[in-house]
Design a protein around this nucleic acid. Structure first.
Ligand code: ZN
Ligand code: ZN
Lengths: 343, 343
DNA sequence: TAACAAGTTC
DNA sequence: GAACTTGTTA
């Protein structure tokens, strides 16, 4: 269960042609046409190791699922009534993902399967869902939807092969077959992927799902900005019953970059003017360096950190899942004034 | 005359609406629409230091100018009957371009004005033009047209502001007001910019033109591949009367990169198994390190190197100057199989 | 201009 | 995985 790349994902509601037809404006048409033309003149010979298949799924009315419309998401830990826990599987020796508990940050390779475990206690009768959303860490970009960069956002992109267009724009993908990709960046909604929380398999306490991140943190869309990955446990009304977040960096050398960041933080705090005595148990920081042998239970405790806050955030609904993929928000910030690569 | 950034360029035949209308297919329409939509949802606040203005020029029938359709261009030096010479102005102390004579390579900053001097003797009565074309150095990509990357190839791109769409796709721009941007990548033609060779100003032997390169060598289009910049002296029939080429790298730190490449070449040749005694006058290699004080004449001698070859290459003509900008040729090569950034 | 950051190559 | 390349930051 390391990082097997043979999972087909993401899997999409395939029956959304009707929806698209409804919403299908000229923009939709042009978008389609453009992509097709673009694709026709592209030569794509790079076969990705990710197999994406056109899996037909039962149709789930989008309004039965919570859809995000809030301006920004809390990143506060919230165990909630069901003791919601998220666990990153301990990193094997050589891996495409590394979690640093001292940084509360996951470093991962682009386009690779990342297994993440979810666990709740006292499961209620009603269906629960887990939403995964990316959000910029900086206050400056908090409200800016995160979507895929323009280079990765067209039909010819191998990772978009056989996928509905509304998925192309999503940076985070989930391998769960019932995943729905929601959010419309044209009306400033954030994108997120939602899947129903299944039952753990026999003998297991948690449910494992595979995730992929299909843009680098350095891509033209994200532009090296820091990211938070936020998992929320929700019901069909989009009420939130749990939350867990961590920082994310999607990069080419996750191990190197994690070690570098940890070293930097360690040094920075050690040589700081005021020796902050905060939560810096740097000794056991990276669960990566040496393949950890701690049990899954021990791993879970990593996340039972913060105080319990009970804020019921009720998101407004939206009944369309199609979104026009081409939006790119270029941040109005000095940071990007000097850059040569981004616009 | 260092690298003044206040030149308006490129200047374009503004009267090409008729042409575009003729050629304007659905593709054209979609292309336009897409770009506009794209632009509308983009927020562009990055004001470039390049001022591009909508300068109206007299219309020149495209078929009066030579248009490239050959598969690939020779990079052989050719002085020709008019003793065609090209001179890179000696680099000032701190500059955005550096020419290495030992490498025959110019290192330059993106989106900066690069002055290049052109000189001929025995000027004939007929009009002469200079064509500037980029071509991949590697045999593997020799026939692949070089165009701008997808990130830089849309209306919202600041460098495309107020410019006709057929120019967006060009990596090389010329400040000459009579410049024409030709070539259609959809039919596998290379892009080039052509300007009529003017008369030297009083007291000068050469004509100076400013050039800009508006994609980095590392952009998603060029993908770090080595480039040749080829200047050809041509008449209205596209017959070639002179040629000069040099390697080009468009990068963020031209000085650093030049010095690094020169050092590398020096070491490589010094420690090589067979100490090649080729043309490696490394002592005076970089005209950059210390601001050279050699005269313009001395500079010209740099380029009078190779044997004279008299190959009259007559290119076929094309009468349209509009091209659909969206073509990107992704090279079918192992080199790109492992990369994370490019498709 | 030097040090850093992060994708690529070997 | 180390070394290199190359855009970014200070
Ligand atoms: Zn991307
Ligand atoms: Zn570019």
């Amino acid at each position: 269960m390391t990082g097997s790349q043979d999972v087909f994902f993401p899997n999409i509601i395939a029956d959304n042609e009707a929806l698209i037809a409804e919403l299908g404006s000229e923009i939709n048409f042009l978008d389609n046409e453009f992509r097709n033309i673009h694709h026709d003149i592209l030569v794509h010979d790079q076969v990705e190791d990710i197999e994406t298949k056109d899996i037909k799924l039962l149709y789930q009315a989008p309004n039965l699922l919570p859809i995000l419309a809030a301006n920004y998401l809390s990143i506060e830990e919230y165990l909630g009534p069901y003791n919601f826990e998220v666990c990153i599987h301990p990193t094997p020796s050589s891996s495409s993902w590394y979690f640093s508990s001292s940084l509360n940050k996951i470093f991962l390779d682009v386009k690779q399967n990342i297994p993440i475990d979810f666990k709740i206690d006292n499961r209620p009768d009603k269906a629960l869902y887990i939403r995964s959303t990316l959000q910029y860490s900086s206050q400056n970009y908090l409200k800016e939807p995160i979507c895929r960069c323009i280079q990765h956002n067209f039909r010819g992109e191998p990772t978009n092969k056989d996928l509905p267009e509304h998925v192309w724009n999503h940076v985070v993908r989930c391998g769960n077959e019932l995943s729905q990709y929601v959010g419309d960046t044209t009306i400033n909604q954030k994108l997120s992927v939602i899947f129903p929380l299944g039952m753990p398999q026999a003998g297991s306490e948690s449910v494992r799902e595979l995730f992929q991140f299909v843009c680098l943190s350095t891509c033209v869309g994200i532009k090296r900005r820091e990211l938070d990955l936020i998992f929320t446990l929700e019901d069909e009304e989009a009420a939130i019953f749990g939350r867990k977040s961590m920082k994310v960096k999607v990069c080419a050398c996750p191990k190197r970059d994690m070690e570098k960041e940890e070293t930097k933080m360690m040094k920075g705090s050690a040589s700081a003017t005021i020796p902050k005595t905060k939560k810096r148990k740097i000794g056991q920081s990276s669960s990566a360096g040496k393949p950890s042998t701690q049990t899954a239970n021990e791993d879970f405790t990593l996340y039972n950190l913060s105080e319990v806050i009970f804020l019921r955030e009720l998101y407004s609904f939206r009944d369309g899942i199609f979104n026009f993929n081409m939006q790119i928000a270029v941040a109005n910030h000095d940071l990007f004034k000097k850059r040569k690569t981004f616009y």
